[in-house]
Design a protein around this nucleic acid. Sequence first.
DNA 1: GTGGCTGCAAAACCTTTGCACACAA
DNA 2: TTGTGTGCAAAGGTTTTGCAGCCAC
Lengths: 138, 138
Amino acid sequence: MNENILKSTDLKTTKSRLAILLILEKSSVPMTAEDIYSIVVKDVHMSLSTTYRTLGTLSEKGILLKNLSRDGKTYYQINSHQHKHQLVCTLCNDVVPIDGCPLTKLEENLTQQTGFTITGHSLEFFGICPKCTKHIKE
Amino acid sequence: MNENILKSTDLKTTKSRLAILLILEKSSVPMTAEDIYSIVVKDVHMSLSTTYRTLGTLSEKGILLKNLSRDGKTYYQINSHQHKHQLVCTLCNDVVPIDGCPLTKLEENLTQQTGFTITGHSLEFFGICPKCTKHIKE
DNA sequence: GTGGCTGCAAAACCTTTGCACACAA
DNA sequence: TTGTGTGCAAAGGTTTTGCAGCCAC
């Protein structure tokens, strides 16, 4: 229940927040503020700035993951607390999640080599999906 | 000589382009258009839009690498044609280059699993550099 | 009732673009 | 000369913010 998520982080339960969480839970793919807004307004009265503010708040609390993508837009997704990466088609923007993360070991090495305390990384693969590959050839 | 680089890509040799290339060659770290502009204008008369246009052109030609970073700004650097990644301090923005890329093998696996034609990836590590770690503790 | 949440509009921010002029080849 | 490159100013798109009113607790 999403109310509990909000309560556990000292956030008030509001229609906007619940609606946004619901949309993101249903989505298997990261979404932009605009994406989310355009869906939510159909059911709940909400402004775009509230969407941004809510997404910001939820990200700060660690409920969402916030990600600036190659197209200059910020994408949000539920933080499943599983470390994930994704593969993005540069033509149709299709997104495929990738299991596992090959970088844990590398991070250990880096810590030793650089003295950095490593707090995270961003990894995204780009390519052309099977559908688009087909379109090109035709 | 940078003139040769420009000639080899059918670009005219202009003061702006040479100045920008010179700055980026001297820099060990990726820079924003604003960064570059503020340095170049001291010597050469140039507008910010020319900076953007030039950086865009040089990136298209593969002379520069263009990278949208976490802070929402676009960073440019000389394309050394070596596949590189970097480690960024989230406090002071210090950047440390990383040798080698552990992802080649993973890309092969992904191609088989997803049918994507993989064209590239972006990988950045984040952490706190030794200097900042020290500051925090003090 | 009170402080956090929201709507609206305006601004901020980085980046791109239109058009006329300037300059490299 | 010719077409590419440039300056200036204005617009573009996404995201943030100020302020007054509203609502969850």
